[in-house]
Amino acid sequence: MANSLTSHRPALAVLLKVTAIALFTALSGIIKATSETVPAGEAVFFRSFFAIPVIVAWLAARGELRHGLITTKPMFHVWRGLVGTSAMGLTFMGLALLPLPEVTAIGYATPIFTLILAALFLGETIRLVRISAVAIGLLGVLIMIWPRLGGDLEDGAMLGVLLVVGATVARGFVQIHIRRMVQSEHTAAIVFYFSLTASGLALLTAPFGWVIPDPQTTALLISAGLVGGVAQILVTSSYRFAPASMLAPYDYASMIFAIVIGYVWFEEWPTLVMLAGAALVISGNVLVIWREHRLGLQRGKAKPMIDPKGG
C-alpha cells in the first residue's frame, strides 16, 4: 500500500476508521455467536480465507496486487503468521467464555504490552512518560481481570481471561515483529501472506474437532471473513486521509459498539469494575499516543493494513 497520504480529509478519515471499528466489533460478535458449535480453529479459517478475495480484489483495483505477491524474506511472514494466528485463535476462544465488552477492553492493553516487549527485544528506551503509561495500563488490566482471578482453570471465566490476555501479549509480539518487516516488506505483502498463512495454519486444526455447520452458521462464518476484509480496507483507506496519531483514539469507539452488540445480541452488560479498568488502560494508551505525537513518530503510517483486529 502506498504509505503517503493522498490528501488531508479528516472528516472522511474518521468516518472510514469508525466504520471499520464497527465492522471489526460486529465480526467479534459473529464469532461469539457461532462459538458454541464451531471450534476456534475453524472460525479462524473462515475469518482468514474469506477475507482473501476481498483483499485481492482491492489490491488489483489499486494496481498493487504484485506488491502482495513479492517478498524478500518469506520466513518473516511465516513467523508473523504463526504468532498472529495464535493471537486470533486465543481471542476467538476467549470470546466463547467472556462477555464481548470485556474481551474488547482487555484487548486495549496491546499497545502497553508492545511497549514492554519493544524495550525487552528491540532495546527501545522507555522514559518517564512511557513508564507511567505502562504502569497505568497494567493497573487497568489488573483491575479488569481481578474479579476473575482466584478460580481454577475449570472456571470458564478464569480460563477466558488467561486466553484473552495471552492473545493480547501475542499481538504485542506481532506489532514489534511488523516493525522489522516493514523495513523490507510492502504492507500489501504483509497482509496478503498473513491471510494466506492464517488460513493454512487454521486448516491444521481440522483433525481436532471441526464440524459441518448448518446453513445459517455457515453464512455467519463466511460473512465474518467478508466483513473482516472490508473493514481492513476501510481502516487502510482512513490512513490515506489523516495521520495515524489523529485517528488512533477512535479505536476506543469499539467499546461503545461492543456494549451495544453485547447487550442486544447476548444480553451482556459491562460491570463498573471492567469499565474502570478499561478507562485506565485507555488513559495509558492516550499517554503513548500523545508522547509519540510529540516526538513526531510516524510508525503508524505503516499500520493501515497491518492492524486488523485479530493478529
Rank of each mutant, 00 (worst) to 15 (best):
S4L: 15
R9G: 06
A13H: 11
V14Q: 03
L16W: 01
K17V: 02
A33Y: 14
A33I: 09
T34D: 10
S35C: 11
S35E: 12
V38R: 02
A43M: 11
F45N: 04
S48G: 13
S48P: 12
I52W: 12
V54N: 05
A60V: 07
A61R: 09
R62E: 10
E64G: 04
L65M: 07
R66L: 10
G68D: 04
L69W: 09
T72V: 00
K73T: 08
K73L: 03
P74R: 10
W79Y: 08
W79C: 05
G81W: 02
G84Y: 05
G89Y: 14
G94H: 05
V103I: 08
I106E: 01
Y108W: 12
I112H: 09
F113N: 02
I116R: 04
F121D: 00
G123N: 07
G123M: 08
I126T: 14
S132W: 00
V134R: 07
V134A: 12
G137P: 09
L139Q: 02
V141N: 00
G150C: 14
E154A: 12
G156L: 11
M158L: 12
V165G: 01
A167N: 14
T168A: 04
V169S: 01
V169M: 03
V174R: 06
R179I: 03
R179D: 02
R179H: 06
R179K: 15
H186M: 03
H186S: 11
T187S: 14
T187G: 07
V191W: 00
V191D: 00
F192N: 02
F194M: 12
S195Y: 15
T197S: 09
T197L: 14
S199F: 04
A202G: 12
T205S: 15
I212L: 13
P213S: 14
L220H: 13
S223R: 01
V227E: 04
G229D: 05
V230P: 04
T236M: 13
T236G: 14
F241G: 07
M246P: 06
A248W: 05
Y250N: 04
Y250P: 08
D251I: 05
Y252N: 10
S254D: 13
S254T: 04
F257T: 04
I261V: 08
Y263D: 09
F266E: 15
E268H: 13
G277I: 01
V286M: 15
V286F: 13
I289Q: 11
G296T: 11
G311A: 14
